[in-house]
Amino acid sequence: MHSLSRRGVLRSLASVGFSALAAHASNLTKVALPAESNAIRLAAQTNAFPIDPRNFDSFLAALGDLKSVGYAGFETGFINLRSQAKSTAEARTRIEAKGLVFTGVHIFLPEYDPQTSIAPQALYESVARLGAELGAQRLILSGSPAVTPDEIKRKADALNRAGQFAKSQGLILAYHNHWPEYKYDGREILQVYADTDPASVSFLLDAGHAYRTGFDIPRFVYEHAARLTGIHFRDFREGKQVPLGQGTFPLRQVASSLERAKWSGWVINEEEREDGTKSGLVVLQPAYTALKGAFGA
């Protein structure tokens, strides 16, 4: 669903010496969040911008645009940071100068480890170290669908291990879903919630992806708020993504559920398009207005 093509991701990974491998939660103890996250705050994913991973200035320009709109934080894909692996102190200074909280570094791949359904351990450990040095708060992992009970168990066990490593680096581990995890009444995602340790694994709910399966998002966020370290928002109309607030996603109902649950954390706009269109502020500005209206943040 992300705009980076499979070939583009693999090429970028190869250029830095890595390759992707080929092929109802009972305990809802809340993972401790950073001290500043004591209220709902607004952030955005950077993948609405045409960032060149080889040009760090293009990434910094995107952060400047987000700041100009009013967003308080950002999330970005690890590809955008790899070029700074040998100059992290300088890069962190330049990032922090933009005045945004670095909410998380996200690993999305065209293919995942077939044994664990998440990123290879060597890759996520490398990205966690880099993210920590650059000031990120979270290591965010996506994954491939796990179907059988054994596959789901292996995925949950791998997330527990990743969560322990992220914690050793001072990061929160957050699992980010796409739509398959919410098919079949959320069978996979609910089992992953149940099989992961709340002290090590939290979740970055992509509410837009889950909504596409017909899932009751307002109810879900109320019932599982304690495991959510952040929420991605996106909107759809007639099967196509549109700027947040211009589609049918129940944004205000979700905001009301989070208020009833007394939830605090990051609400993150993700304005990516399946056709790879990079519209930047054209879509991020109205989305910010919609988030501001719903959450008053």
Rank of each mutant, 00 (worst) to 15 (best):
residue 1 M to T: 09
residue 4 L to M: 13
residue 6 R to T: 05
residue 9 V to S: 02
residue 11 R to C: 04
residue 12 S to D: 07
residue 14 A to E: 09
residue 26 S to H: 13
residue 29 T to M: 07
residue 29 T to V: 11
residue 30 K to L: 12
residue 31 V to C: 03
residue 31 V to N: 08
residue 35 A to I: 01
residue 40 I to F: 04
residue 42 L to Y: 12
residue 44 A to P: 01
residue 52 D to L: 07
residue 53 P to M: 09
residue 53 P to A: 03
residue 58 S to C: 07
residue 59 F to S: 09
residue 62 A to G: 06
residue 66 L to M: 13
residue 67 K to P: 15
residue 69 V to W: 03
residue 70 G to V: 12
residue 80 N to E: 15
residue 83 S to M: 12
residue 84 Q to T: 11
residue 88 T to G: 08
residue 89 A to N: 04
residue 89 A to F: 01
residue 91 A to S: 15
residue 94 R to S: 10
residue 98 K to N: 12
residue 98 K to L: 10
residue 104 G to N: 07
residue 105 V to G: 07
residue 105 V to P: 05
residue 118 I to A: 01
residue 126 S to T: 05
residue 127 V to Y: 07
residue 128 A to L: 08
residue 133 E to N: 15
residue 134 L to Q: 11
residue 142 S to G: 14
residue 153 K to V: 09
residue 159 L to I: 02
residue 163 G to E: 03
residue 165 F to N: 10
residue 165 F to Y: 15
residue 169 Q to Y: 04
residue 170 G to W: 06
residue 172 I to D: 10
residue 183 K to R: 11
residue 184 Y to S: 12
residue 186 G to Q: 05
residue 189 I to L: 06
residue 190 L to Q: 03
residue 203 F to D: 10
residue 203 F to N: 00
residue 208 G to P: 08
residue 209 H to C: 07
residue 210 A to T: 05
residue 210 A to N: 05
residue 210 A to D: 05
residue 216 D to M: 09
residue 218 P to F: 11
residue 223 E to D: 15
residue 224 H to M: 11
residue 225 A to R: 09
residue 226 A to R: 14
residue 227 R to L: 14
residue 228 L to R: 09
residue 228 L to Y: 07
residue 229 T to D: 12
residue 229 T to Q: 10
residue 232 H to V: 03
residue 238 E to Q: 14
residue 241 Q to W: 03
residue 249 F to N: 01
residue 252 R to F: 10
residue 264 S to C: 05
residue 273 R to Q: 12
residue 274 E to I: 02
residue 277 T to C: 00
residue 279 S to W: 08
residue 282 V to S: 13
residue 282 V to A: 14
residue 287 A to S: 15
residue 287 A to I: 06
residue 292 K to T: 11
